[in-house]
Write a protein that binds this DNA or RNA. Structure first.
Length: 558
RNA sequence: UGCCCCCUCGUCCAACGGCAGGACAUCGGACUUUGGAUCCGAGAAUGGUGGUUCGAAUCCACCGGGGGCAACCA
């Protein structure tokens, strides 16, 4: 913590460090993560979670998980569960689990307090009139005819509103601020409104529901939050925040500070659009591995550590950002590189027959599970035999200069295996290559030539007889354009190649009994995870988390 | 159009009146039983114009650009 105080990573930590040093709040740092439970947590939330929980942890404080469930429409326990699961999965633990809906009674009493202070009034205009009288950005609003209602009348109305005597929209409680305020949000903001609707937690106990600008500052203040960290779009709400906590008499009230949201290239983040992708069947569900949801990323094979590292890299500032996908992919590869075992999997098999290898023989070769530069140990045995499969892309009949893989007459190394030389190309009637007839050099077992000769390339392979058939799901960016938010119809920008399902891939037998959710690097191909939903012994399914960096692909492009 | 916020390499983040630096990306090279990883190197930025100052990315003014706000959503 002293380290953080010495070198704050961003303007927020800088501010918190200063507040801690000055003893500004006279209490330990307390933050909160306040999601509305009306959608699934996504990678944008990850940033907020890392900031809210991270700041508290770094400064020896606490962070509450508070559900901002003040709007009965759309909120549901299933979203509450999702947030709980995903926050814990990310590696954070909250101090208290709280619900703004538990404060309804308190909110109401603060409403009465404001009325008594002459700082709020019951307005009986229609919603149309309220909107019209708010004015515009250039023209001031006009006072409600009910603005100067006597306190007693306001109180009476407010009590009857709570008692359910009025239909939806008949009256609202408004703060009495300034209908000509340059900040539109300060033009007598609505605080409480009547809504005869069941709440997922409160049932029919309430028909008076607070609005964000009323509930949020009060919730923070009630809980004794010190630093209320939120995203930039709440900047204008900060004026009300300060007004409200002062009017309600809180001593050393929380301070709201805004930072920019995370946005990522080639995806969308709004709940509405995410929901549309699910409802339209563009994706298989909220946890589709192409979704930017935490559950989607998890199913994709991303780890909490990788995600946290990414957020760290993306940084915290007040500048609206759009982070490149490459930054995320790097964080994921960097994390997975040092922790997952390597295995051999041929995605698009091409048969290879070793004409000088004895028929029917199988030998089991020792293969390390980690490369020399990863500080983990372990190995497994992989079968080798006369009939193998190699990657179709690893053979070219007429290769360009820099193609280092297999070609007629050329010798390559089979990873952990032998050197082989391509002697003959077998094609079907349509001219498609269906088999390679090669010879192997028995002296190169394990991949080293005793005579010291070198080969240009090393390719992966599996033994035809023992390899396991599997399905491989190749995921790619969900959209074809970096910013799907700026087009009319974002659905039209969905990448048709965002999922390519490959059946008939072959993986080495060692993975056959691993539990679903096991992560691997398929050597030379990418990082994969066995799918937690669909993968079963005997019917293995692997999701591509992210491909390996591919220098050859770049060379090929030219 | 009124108010508010923002503007530094392609991207993200530093530099808090004193030599514009890092990460990712890009391009070269080394190494390599993954065309992975790693290592080395290169190119690459203060939106513009004035002002204050010995000195400005930093302070001020204006201009330009981007974003937010006119739900009884959050």
């Amino acid at each position: 913590m002293s380290q953080d105080a010495a070198a704050p990573r961003d303007f927020i930590r800088e501010m918190v460090a200063a507040d801690v040093a000055s003893g500004r709040f006279g209490r330990p740092v307390k933050t909160r993560f306040p999601p509305e439970p009306n959608g699934f947590p996504h990678i944008g939330h990850v940033k907020a979670i890392c900031v809210d929980f991270g700041v508290a942890k770094e400064f020896g404080g606490t962070c509450n998980l508070r559900f901002d469930d003040t709007n009965p429409a759309g909120e549901d326990v299933k979203y509450v569960e999702a947030f709980r699961t995903d926050i814990r999965w990310l590696g954070f633990e909250w101090d208290a689990e709280l619900y703004a809906s538990d404060y309804f009674e308190q909110f109401y009493r603060y409403g009465e307090l404001l009325v008594q202070r002459g700082s709020a009034y019951v307005d009986s205009q229609t919603d149309d009139e309220i909107r019209k009288n708010r004015g515009t950005v250039t023209a001031p609003g006009t006072n409600s005819p009910y603005r100067d209602r006597p306190v007693a009348e306001n109180l009476d109305l407010l009590r009857r509103m709570k008692a359910g005597e009025f239909p939806d929209g008949a009256h609202v409680l408004r703060g009495k601020i300034d209908m000509a305020h340059p900040n539109m949000l300060m033009r007598d903001p609505i605080l409480l409104r009547i809504r005869h609707a069941p709440h997922y937690r409160q049932g029919d106990a309430w028909c008076l529901y607070p609005l964000y600008d009323f509930a949020h500052p009060l919730s923070d203040a009630i809980e004794g939050v010190t630093h209320s960290l939120c995203s930039l779009e709440f900047k204008d709400n900060n004026d009300i925040y300060r007004w409200l906590v002062r009017e309600c008499g809180f001593d050393r009230p929380p301070e709201q500070t805004e930072f920019s949201r995370l946005s990522l290239e080639y995806t969308v983040m709004s709940k509405r659009k995410l929901l549309r992708l699910v409802n339209d069947g563009v994706v298989s569900g909220w946890d589709d591995p192409r979704m930017p949801t935490i559950s989607g990323l998890r199913r994709r094979g991303v780890t909490p550590e990788g995600l946290r590292a990414f957020v760290e890299t993306a940084g915290v500032s007040r500048k609206p950002q759009r982070t490149e996908l490459a930054t995320l992919e790097h964080a994921i590869r960097n994390d997975l590189n040092t922790r997952v075992p390597r295995v051999l999997c041929v995605v698009n098999p091409l048969k290879v027959v070793l004409t000088n290898y004895p028929e029917g023989e199988v030998e089991w070769l020792e293969a390390p599970s980690y490369p020399h530069d990863v500080p983990l140990t372990g190995s497994r045995r992989v079968p080798f035999s006369r009939e193998l499969y190699i990657e179709r892309d690893d053979f070219m009949e007429d290769p360009p200069k820099k193609f280092f893989r297999l070609a007629p007459g050329r010798e390559v190394r089979l990873r952990y295996g032998y050197f082989i030389t391509c002697r003959e190309v077998v094609k079907d009637s349509s001219g498609r290559v269906v088999e390679l007839r090669c010879t192997y050099d028995p002296a190169t077992r394990g991949g080293d030539a005793p005579d010291g000769r070198k080969v240009q390339g090393t390719i992966h392979w599996v033994s035809a007889g023992q390899a396991l058939d599997c399905e491989v799901r190749l995921y790619d960016r969900l959209f074809t354009i970096p910013n799907p938010d700026e087009v009319e119809d974002f659905i039209a920008a969905v990448n048709p190649g965002s999922l390519v399902v490959v059946r008939g891939a072959r993986v080495e037998p060692s993975v056959g009994s691993d539990p679903p959710g096991t992560r691997y690097q398929f050597e030379r191909t990418g990082y994969f995870v066995s799918d937690v939903v669909d993968s079963r012994p005997g019917a293995l399914v692997f999701n591509r988390t992210v491909g390996l960096r591919d220098t050859w692909a770049k060379v090929k492009e030219r």
